[in-house]
Design a protein around this nucleic acid. Sequence first.
DNA 1: AACCGCTTGTGAACGCCTGAACAAAGTCGC
DNA 2: GCGACTTTGTTCAGGCGTTCACAAGCGGTT
Lengths: 230, 230
Amino acid sequence: MPESRPRIVPEATVARLAVYLRVLAGLADGGRSHVSSGELASAAGVNPAGLRKDLSYLGPCGVRGVGYSVAGLRDRLTDALGGERSRACVLVGIGRLGSALADYSGFASRGFQFVGLLDTDPATVGHQVGGLTVRPVAELEGLVAETQATIGVITTPADVAQSVCDRLVAAGVRSILNFAPVALSVPAGVDVRKVDLSVELQVLAFLDQQRDGVPPVLAPVRATAQGGVR
Amino acid sequence: MPESRPRIVPEATVARLAVYLRVLAGLADGGRSHVSSGELASAAGVNPAGLRKDLSYLGPCGVRGVGYSVAGLRDRLTDALGGERSRACVLVGIGRLGSALADYSGFASRGFQFVGLLDTDPATVGHQVGGLTVRPVAELEGLVAETQATIGVITTPADVAQSVCDRLVAAGVRSILNFAPVALSVPAGVDVRKVDLSVELQVLAFLDQQRDGVPPVLAPVRATAQGGVR
DNA sequence: AACCGCTTGTGAACGCCTGAACAAAGTCGC
DNA sequence: GCGACTTTGTTCAGGCGTTCACAAGCGGTT
Ligand SMILES: NC(=O)c1ccc[n+]([C@@H]2O[C@H](COP(=O)([O-])OP(=O)(O)OC[C@H]3O[C@@H](n4cnc5c(N)ncnc54)[C@H](O)[C@@H]3O)[C@@H](O)[C@H]2O)c1
Ligand SMILES: NC(=O)c1ccc[n+]([C@@H]2O[C@H](COP(=O)([O-])OP(=O)(O)OC[C@H]3O[C@@H](n4cnc5c(N)ncnc54)[C@H](O)[C@@H]3O)[C@@H](O)[C@H]2O)c1
């Protein structure tokens, strides 16, 4: 059996692999059997050469002169990104954003299943959201242990996000997706990814201003003499 | 002395500047007058040297031996990231996610104001969300022209996201924040940033699997790293 | 069977960003 | 006023990621 080489995959590549996988799933539904790197790259919004390099981390996946087998590549990517098995997620903070996430069907189709919704607000606890009943946050530890959840999603206000994070980690969760606008500190061995929507808007505002303001005036300036007053 | 010329600022740095700005706002509310790069970096979840390098793109901002003036640096960052003026945003697709965004108060405090909410669903149009009335998507062009909105946020289903994007661009919007899981194609001069939550979960799943699969391989163990997009 | 067109896979150059060390500069104590 | 301490701003090197360009390989065709 040809052992697949466990090369190191850059994190940026992993994120793009997930995008390729989604595009491939759509192509498979459309009945396509083969696809070229150019077409796939176009649909994913990336450079064709970069896409081929990304896929090369998984070893040879395509057929030269033909392209990639849609179903074959899809399965390969699925396997590389964590396999078929469904991953249990707990969601803490069932407010406006948390409710939207809990109700979203797009996660389940990718193997991510919410197994617990937690909140402190008595007015929220007991409600049915996305087929689950919101439970009091006191049950967090028991829920994680019981369901073996590996992913925790934090959609609480910022001031309690760190304490929620600490409890999740202590309960055994090793992957956290954080929507609260704070930098969480976690022990080594725990991964945190942060989604910061305000930052996204602010970056857009900056790019907008830069475009109008002083566009490409001093792009290639390589002035090494920084001492002089400008 | 002439105003300091804006050097080329890497986009990754811009995103972090927005984070620093938020931390500084919190410190200012707390009454702090000065802060060191170490403390600020800790609160933002980055390396102190990297933070100083980021700030150096704006020219000298601090006082050696003392640190940074909280209010001074906050104002400087605010200016660098697009000024004080409030930016008008239109939100298309007032479903679960769109409603959560429209209702969120955290954007207004950073100068981003929703001036229009658009949807096609007759059951949604006319409803009051976040102080605004949802209007039919047919009014998109008129609304953008009238309000001079510069930012468009897309929270529609994926299959109509491209057409919505095209209409926004044609109406004059030059910055787009896209939550739909598709790669939007836009003409040059228009900036798109994409938020893809499924990808975030998939990356976490990959890291989780990698950790369990081949533990002793990864040399670079980062303590409290916070992912970025990058 | 051999050629030809097409597409993949990869090597190497380039540019960007990150992390650490060092020098400049300002303040506080005396 | 002066020294020493603190903290910034900058420079340097290293790693990572992206892009280009081309050789290698496969299918179809004659
Ligand atoms: N809604 C958005 O569009 C948006 C955008 C950007 C960032 N965010 C961030 O996402 C987070 C949630 O936003 P939201 O709009 O849903 O807020 P929200 O107030 O609607 O919801 C927060 C929920 O967390 C619950 N909660 C509070 N303390 C808790 C605790 N200790 N344990 C468990 N649950 C607790 C509250 O009861 C509430 O239901 C916030 O940090 C916010 O800054 C939201
Ligand atoms: N809800 C989530 O947690 C979540 C997570 C990840 C991604 N997303 C993505 O965000 C988008 C919205 O998600 P959602 O859960 O809010 O979906 P939703 O179905 O609740 O809302 C979509 C809204 O868009 C409106 N709409 C449809 N066609 C339109 C058009 N042509 N013009 C204007 N409005 C139109 C619909 O009437 C509806 O109100 C989807 O693309 C989804 O894939 C959502």
